[in-house]
Structure formats: structure tokens, C-alpha cells
């Protein structure tokens, strides 16, 4: 099996709006694959469908040989994900968040203990393992989420804008760890980002999506050659234009602003 992800004619409509319009692409096993696009281009919608939390309107998704709609549970065993927004339980400690994840993924308790220690050490959070996550900074939370996403040894790791808001030190540390893991464990990495130099440096292949369609796919060099530009940033702008896009506020965003006015309550 050469392709770990196979997407064929994937479509997602929300009412009259077509968020993802008939896209097809493959990701090879062991590849680091970047998925780029302006806001509202359909990146997150695609990731949500790949990770089984959104049902496609039509089309096929195969991940690690399993069909995302009919064998959702096998697919869920095959990937780990670091979401764009934090998805930790703030009231639990770092180690409790890890443990909960391990149990949900059926990692046997002995293996779970070993891996949690190893992973928390790696992301340099072992000393803080018994602190509640609400005391953590944004970077620490991100590191914990990465450790958590790897706990069940997934075949594919999805990262949705993983470096957003991280300082260069943390960003570098994170990528060198992920590249190491990619080499030694053969983990496939699928990530989205708005930092073009990051995609250029890290990704082996890059797909650019706009208006729900894949408009370019290849190595950074191929994309630059195709557009006769010298940087991925220029290639990206040439392909997607320079008009600034608006993204519809998600329910969570709306609630956050609502909460600001009304005063928080939990």
C-alpha cells in the first residue's frame, strides 16, 4: 500500500454553499504533506471529513486502507490530530489528559504509562505533569496536544495550523521532533499552515486549495517553476490572488464574543 490517504471526488455542501468542490488527491505513506489555502478555502472542512467528524456530501476517502464513512472506527484508530483550537480539558492535569486519551484509544495501561512518560519528557512537560492544563501557556498546551496526538502511535498525524501563535523556538523544536518521528517511525504528517516558508522548508509535497478546489499540487520547486516565481509565498499569491478573504465566524467564535459582553460563566 503506497498511498496512506486517497481522496476521490470529495464534495461537501452546506445548504447552497459548496465548501469543498470535487477534490481528489493522494498522500504517500511516510510523506510530509502540506495543505495550503486562504481562509475559507475549504482546508478545515477537508480535514474534518478526513478525520470523520464531518460526513461528506459525496466522494470517497480512504485512510490507511479504511473507508472514512463506512469504517469510521478503523480510520479513527489510524490517525492522531492536533486541532487548530485547543481541545484539552483545562480542569484536568497534563497526565490526566494523556491518560484519558490513552484509554479512549484502547492503549493497554502498561504501554500507556511508558509512552506518556516518554512523550511528556520529549515535549518537556514531564515536570508539569500534575499541573492543571488551565495553568499552561499556549505553547505548552500545543506541545501537550502533540504528545497526546502521538500517544496511540497513529499512522497519520493531522496538524491543523499547529504553529499558530507559537514563538520560533517552540516552532523549531516541534518541527524537528516531527521530522525525526517521520524518519524513524515512518509517520505520515498532514498539516495546514499560513506560514509559507514553513511549508516550503518542511513539506515534501504541497497542495493548494482555493474556492473548494485543488488548484496546484507538487513539490515547492514544482509550484515555483509552474508560476515562475522564486518563493512559495509568491507562487501562492499568484495562484490564489491577493484579495483578502473573510471567513464566516464559527459558532464558537460567536459565543466567545457573546461571552465577552455578558461576562463569563462556566
Amino acid at each position: 500500500m503506497d498511498n496512506i490517504i486517497e481522496v476521490k471526488n470529495l464534495v461537501k455542501n452546506f445548504g447552497d454553499v459548496t465548501a469543498v468542490n470535487d477534490i481528489s488527491f493522494d498522500v504517500k505513506k511516510g510523506e510530509i504533506f502540506a495543505f495550503l489555502g486562504p481562509n475559507g478555502a475549504g482546508k478545515s472542512t477537508t480535514i474534518k471529513m478526513l478525520t470523520t467528524i464531518l460526513t461528506p456530501t459525496s466522494g470517497d476517502i480512504k485512510l490507511n486502507g479504511h473507508d472514512a464513512t463506512t469504517d469510521a472506527n478503523d480510520v479513527r484508530h489510524s490517525f492522531g490530530i492536533v486541532f487548530q483550537d485547543p481541545s484539552l480539558d483545562d480542569d484536568l492535569t497534563a497526565i490526566e489528559n494523556m491518560n484519558l486519551h490513552g484509554v479512549l484509544y484502547g492503549v493497554p495501561s502498561k504501554v500507556r504509562k511508558e509512552r506518556i512518560e516518554q512523550l511528556l519528557n520529549f515535549v518537556e512537560l514531564w515536570d508539569r505533569r500534575n499541573s492543571q492544563v488551565k495553568e499552561f501557556s499556549g505553547g505548552m498546551k500545543r506541545r501537550l496536544e502533540i504528545a497526546r496526538g502521538l500517544l496511540h502511535h497513529p499512522a497519520v498525524l493531522f496538524l491543523d495550523e499547529p504553529t499558530l501563535g507559537l514563538d520560533p523556538q517552540t516552532r523549531n523544536h516541534m518541527w524537528s521532533y516531527l521530522q525525526e518521528l517521520n524518519k524513524t517511525e515512518g509517520i505520515t504528517v498532514f498539516f495546514t499552515t499560513h506560514y509559507m516558508e514553513e511549508a516550503e522548508r518542511i513539506a515534501q509535497r504541497i497542495a493548494i486549495i482555493d474556492h473548494g478546489q485543488i488548484i496546484a499540487l507538487g513539490t515547492a520547486d514544482e509550484l515555483k517553476k509552474k508560476t515562475s516565481t522564486d518563493s512559495l509565498e509568491d507562487a501562492f499569491l499568484k495562484l490564489t490572488g491577493s484579495v483578502i478573504r473573510d471567513e464566516d465566524a464559527s459558532a464558537a467564535d460567536k459565543m466567545r464574543s457573546h461571552r465577552m459582553w455578558r461576562g463569563g460563566r462556566r
Binding site: 483550537d85 481541545s87 484539552l88 484509544y105 459565543m255
Partner: peptide, 16 residues
Amino acid sequence: WDRQFGFLKETLVAPV
């Protein structure tokens, strides 16, 4: 709240 703070997603992508 779990939806807002993201934790819900963590449980929904789990093979459970």
C-alpha cells in the same frame, strides 16, 4: 462548553 473549549472534538475523533 466542551464544544466551545474544543474538548468535544477530542472525544468525537476517538475510536469509541
